[in-house]
Design a protein around this nucleic acid. Structure first.
Length: 111
DNA sequence: AGTATGACAGTCA
DNA sequence: CTGACTGCCATAC
């Protein structure tokens, strides 16, 4: 698969993440049909962090850990964005991650 | 064509 | 619980 298709899908899903919700790389990867390509999701997000329309801050690893926060402009920008959505972040980790977790496979329709 | 790496995930010691 | 190792997909050199 070309990077464009994969990346585009990652962006697509990421943009669809509802306000106040977060998801994991694995969930996105699963939605894309490659549940073992969670790294590629991160890779795609890494390339997408230049695009403000993509709420990459809502994408964290399976532990709810803000593993990519250092990729943002400011070291605390990601956390602030999350807190702005009523999502509490502590020690670089989303509090009650399960509660805010949003699985694209549940609410999105594959095409 | 082969090796190294990545915002990961899962398993094992 | 923490650390190390493997698996998997795609990209970069």
């Amino acid at each position: 698969m070309t990077a464009e298709g994969f990346f585009s899908r990652v962006y697509e899903v990421t943009k669809l993440i509802p306000f106040g919700r977060v998801t994991s790389y694995g969930a996105i990867a699963k939605y894309l049909g490659t549940p073992r390509s969670a790294r590629m999701v991160g890779w795609a997000l890494n390339a997408s962090h230049l695009d403000d329309s993509i709420p990459a801050h809502r994408v964290v690893n399976r532990n709810g850990l803000l593993s990519g926060k250092h990729h943002f402009k400011g070291s605390n920008l990601m956390q602030q964005l999350l807190e702005n959505e009523n999502i509490k972040v502590e020690n670089n980790q989303v509090v009650a991650f399960e509660k805010y977790f949003w699985d694209p496979n549940i609410q999105l329709i594959k095409h």
